[in-house]
Write a protein that binds this DNA or RNA. Sequence first.
DNA 1: TCAAACTCTTGATCTAGATCAAGTTTTTAC
DNA 2: GTAAAAACTTGATCTAGATCAAGAGTTTGA
Lengths: 192, 192
Amino acid sequence: MYEIFQKYIEEKAEFTPAESERIQSFAIIKKLRKRQYLLQEGDVWKYDAFITQGCVRTYTVDDKGSEHVNSFSIENWWTGDRESLMMQAPSRFNIDAIEDTELVLFTHENFELLCREIPSFNHMVNTILQRSFIAAQNRIQASLTLTAEEKYLNFISKYPGFASRIPQTMIASYLGMTPETLSRIRKQTAKK
Amino acid sequence: MYEIFQKYIEEKAEFTPAESERIQSFAIIKKLRKRQYLLQEGDVWKYDAFITQGCVRTYTVDDKGSEHVNSFSIENWWTGDRESLMMQAPSRFNIDAIEDTELVLFTHENFELLCREIPSFNHMVNTILQRSFIAAQNRIQASLTLTAEEKYLNFISKYPGFASRIPQTMIASYLGMTPETLSRIRKQTAKK
DNA sequence: TCAAACTCTTGATCTAGATCAAGTTTTTAC
DNA sequence: GTAAAAACTTGATCTAGATCAAGAGTTTGA
């Protein structure tokens, strides 16, 4: 499924055939079965990972054993733990597959090499990072200003399609509320 | 106060004298009096802004007129609205000075030019962006997992010194709680 | 320098959402 | 195909933190 990644980068920037080949030469294809881990808490994350098919979640587990979902990533998105990658430190996060998933991985050394060698690749990566940062800012803003119901409505309007493929329990966790609260909200909003 | 910025970039990367001069040639020095705006909601943000002295806050105002503080930035940090900058769209944020403040501004065109011309500048900017993203992720994680008291303790341990120069009302807003709640938490924790 | 306007504190009360509990439906795995 | 395990729903009750209110500092600006 490398073609999906190929198509993605060609939409974002221009590459010569030689550059495309260079990029592909570093790509590692990885498949995950549903529930399989991509990263476990305590391990150091070493890749830049792009999803070509499927869906993963990034979450932490607290002292009481409850899970807190930090993010979902589906096809045409990136995943991983940037903090662990950058600091070369053990990750606080777990990442596992919600569905059978296919990814394209690059070791971070190779990824940085590509950034240095290919200006348009570097520029693309930078743009993606900026967008990720903006999305994170918006999520913070939402968590400060919205009620539980507004958070849910905001979520489904921002990510239509997610609600149908991700269990409600996980969505509730992502939104910072209990599954019971989400269930009641859904009942409420369905009426309207 | 350009020297403070000079010192900052030299700690982050290596620059030839010609490069340093090139960077400085684009710098705009800006001073803000306490309460003065750097950016008002509805305006398009056009700069990359570094604080050499002082402190600003970034916040939104909701329909009911209440303010929600998104972030504080002090000397040796960057500020601005990346979303407005990137999309060239009116900002949802206000940025104003909590203290008399001095900044170094670059128009975004000049800033991008510097990124293209000077690889170490580009690399530095990229690193900063990555760190900002990581910080945003951590803030999301904290907002999902911590109680009000834990959020406050986390804040003062992460940003010692902030508590003494920023009004409590604003800190409460940043942490997503009311000033009354923060006041009570401070009373509680002072005892221990 | 002094009144007006903020800022912080403390108490009383309220409420959105959490927790606990139990039943129902859906998914999974052999 | 079916039993066990998850996932979801619904109701009853509880609680962290919000809201409302009022007094005590502190800052500010003419």
